[in-house]
């Protein structure tokens, strides 16, 4: 990350198209665009995963390495970013925070994936039946190695709701905090 100008130092999750100038122009040709779109989708997800990014403020991230390749001086324009994120939303890899479409949650795993991960972790650590606060799950010392560590609270609730629907968990409020009990 520190020396992105050196192309060879790019982390592996950067797609090869990162240095291809037309990659930053919305291709009018449908076939070209669909290839371009899928490249962008996987790049956004991989990037967010590597950087543990849960929510993407489009206006802010536009200037980051994700959408801006300084070495070739090309950036993906905002409408095109929206279009890509819209496509992610369609496949439930993302979710708009509001209808303005300026901030989006990025699920580099689907809520179902996260839910089953959390469930198996609770199962493995023998915490079934105990009440855990949501903060414990995302910020606790025990979960630093887990993929969902640092996850946004709202997103976590969404993931836990998957378990609730399956009848494997119950979410309740303890004052300002929220708790979850899995069985």
């Amino acid at each position: 990350m520190a020396n992105l100008k050196d192309k060879s130092a790019l982390p592996a999750y950067y797609p090869e198209f990162y240095t291809f100038p037309p990659f930053y122009t919305r291709q009018p040709n449908a076939a070209s665009w669909s290839s371009q779109l899928s490249q962008w989708r996987s790049f956004i997800l991989a990037y967010c995963r590597a950087h543990k990014l849960w929510r993407l403020n489009l206006a802010d991230t536009m200037e980051t390495d994700l959408f801006y390749n300084k070495s070739i001086n090309r950036k993906l324009p905002l409408p095109t970013i929206r279009e890509v994120v819209d496509d992610l939303v369609k496949s439930s890899n993302a979710e708009w925070l509001s209808s303005e479409k300026s901030i989006a949650y990025i699920y580099w795993r689907t809520p179902e994936d996260f839910a089953s991960q959390i469930y198996s972790w609770i199962d493995e650590t023998g915490q079934k039946g105990t009440v855990l606060t949501l903060l414990e799950l995302t910020e606790g010392d025990n979960t630093t190695q887990q993929e969902w560590y640092g996850m946004d609270q709202t997103m976590l609730v969404k993931c836990l709701n998957v378990l609730v629907k399956k009848g494997q968990a119950q979410v309740f409020s303890v004052g300002d905090d929220k708790g979850v009990k899995v069985w």
């Binding site: 100038p21 291709q27 070209s32 371009q36």
Partner: peptide, 20 residues
């Protein structure tokens, strides 16, 4: 689908499409 464009403030440049 054999060309792709690169629109920048310098104008539109044309590249051979890697996706074609």
């Amino acid at each position: 689908g054999e060309l792709v464009r690169d629109t920048s403030f310098e104008g539109v440049r044309w590249w051979k499409s890697p996706w074609y």
